[in-house]
Simulated assay, not measured.
Amino acid sequence: MPEGHSVHRIARQFDRNFIGKTLHASSPQGRFAEGAAVLDGREAVSVKAVGKQMFLEAEGDLWLRVHLGLYGAWDFAGEILLDPTIASANGRMGQTNQRGTDPDLLDDAQILDDVGENSLASIGAPRRTRVHVRMSEQTKGLEDEGAEWPPPIVGQVRLRLMTDITAADLRGPTACVLQTPDEMLATVAKLGPDPLVGDPAENEERFVRAVRKKGTAIALLLMDQSVVSGIGNVYRAEMLYRARLNPHTPGKAVPEEIVRQLWEDWARLLPLGVETGQMMTMDDLSPADYRAAMASRDDRHWVYHRAGLPCRVCGTEIVLEELGARKLYWCPRCQA
């Protein structure tokens, strides 16, 4: 499932390429035909991400709510204006860690994720193919003046949004619905705090209160979108390891300082994920190790997807179990 960083990247992509422009909307698949007809011809006014959901405002007090779920993705085509705060499609980026970006480690060579997680062309669930992207004049490479326009429909496209030069195709979402302003606000009100939305201090207190009052395992609470927004399976496992916290500990039994540490860690990791397009959770890597991590998820995490392999710190075999119908990875020694 796409986690919070991906949805924030999608929102920024829409902000740069669709806001202030007239939307041409259609539903090639047909399942959102009525909604697309309502959207068609309206100007895109604003966009925001909260956790794993994106909200696109159109003129006339209308909101499009999209939840990608397990399999959803947005595929972009045409001329794309890059958000300068996130990594570009060609994968050029430098070392990013808890202290920020180190300019001495910038490299012109490509650092491309093996499943395209940092792709400009497709954001969401991994895709084997990518829709063609013709970069704008503000970027370099990937230009192809002979590309077909509008791009052909590929697969089951729930919703296609277009401007005169940019297209965005939505495939496989859990939710794609139109809402009134009140309905949108009611949806957001049910979501837990997102470090990139709202007041930082208030967000932290909301998270601490929600965790400390529940007897539910902390591993389940971190995945509960009413407790905290945006955390999925990868970030959940990694944050618990980074805190050296047993995933089965009841929320109310987790010391308050550890709960705050979890929030502070999420508030660091989420912006890094938005910037790079990848869920980097290891710190202080050498340049070579960082490049390997950016190219392969298996080199990027402490415990996630490492079942049966030795813990990077203590050597104990990483455990895989099912909790809440999702896979949980953890080290039984470091997180005892």
Score class of each variant (00 low, 15 high):
200 P>T: 07
276 T>R: 05
240 L>D: 01
282 M>H: 06
195 P>K: 05
249 T>D: 05
229 S>A: 15
266 W>G: 08
292 A>I: 00
213 K>Q: 07
221 L>D: 10
298 D>A: 09
185 L>C: 04
299 D>R: 12
290 Y>P: 02
287 P>N: 11
191 L>Q: 15
188 V>F: 05
283 D>M: 04
182 D>H: 08
191 L>N: 08
287 P>I: 03
241 Y>P: 04
294 M>F: 00
238 E>M: 09
311 C>F: 08
200 P>C: 05
216 T>F: 02
280 M>A: 09
243 A>W: 03
255 P>Q: 12
189 A>C: 10
218 I>F: 01
215 G>R: 02
269 L>K: 08
300 R>K: 01
189 A>D: 15
275 E>H: 14
194 D>H: 04
196 L>K: 02
276 T>D: 08
300 R>A: 10
196 L>S: 04
212 R>Y: 00
191 L>T: 04
258 I>Q: 13
285 L>G: 07
230 G>L: 10
234 V>S: 06
297 R>I: 01
185 L>P: 00
281 T>W: 00
306 R>S: 11
261 Q>W: 11
207 F>C: 07
278 Q>S: 09
302 W>R: 10
201 A>Y: 05
257 E>A: 15
255 P>H: 03
187 T>A: 15
311 C>H: 08
297 R>A: 13
291 R>V: 14
261 Q>A: 14
257 E>Q: 14
231 I>A: 13
256 E>W: 00
210 A>D: 10
204 E>S: 06
293 A>Y: 07
240 L>P: 02
280 M>G: 14
294 M>P: 00
207 F>Q: 07
284 D>C: 02
295 A>H: 00
